[in-house]
């Protein structure tokens, strides 16, 4: 797993550090650093919890998301 942190966006809140059960992240100089990316199992809790949306995972398996209302997504894409 390749995890990238946007260091300009990261506010150093440490939520990803606390949330990750596999200690993938560490705070260094006020910024989150993925120190054990191989321990990441791709749950994406850190994405959900990151207030700055500073994270990017490469090589992830995206689970099926049939619960999503496609009409809402299409509408959002028209607006954004």
């Amino acid at each position: 797993m390749d995890i990238r942190v946007d260091t300009d966006a990261c506010v150093g809140c440490g939520l990803c550090v606390k949330d990750c059960p596999m200690d993938v992240y560490e705070l260094r100089d006020g910024v989150s650093v993925p120190v054990k990316p191989k321990n990441c199992m791709g749950c994406l809790s850190c994405h959900e919890i990151c207030p700055a949306q500073a994270l990017e995972h490469r090589g992830i398996y995206p689970a099926r998301r049939h619960y999503i209302d496609m009409r809402v997504c299409e509408m959002l894409n028209r607006v954004i």
């Binding site: 791709g42 994406l44 994405h47 990151c50 949306q53 500073a54 994270l55 990017e56 995972h57 490469r58 090589g59 992830i60 398996y61 995206p62 099926r64 998301r65 049939h66 999503i68 209302d69 496609m70 997504c73 299409e74 959002l76 894409n77 954004i80």
Partner: peptide, 25 residues
């Protein structure tokens, strides 16, 4: 089977699921 080259960003809004759920949504 669980390895992909997909890049996942927090701000992504999905446009499709596999299989498309429109018929059974």
């Amino acid at each position: 089977s669980f390895h992909t080259d997909i890049v996942y960003r927090s701000e992504d809004i999905p446009l499709e699921c596999t299989p498309r759920p429109s018929e059974m949504e």
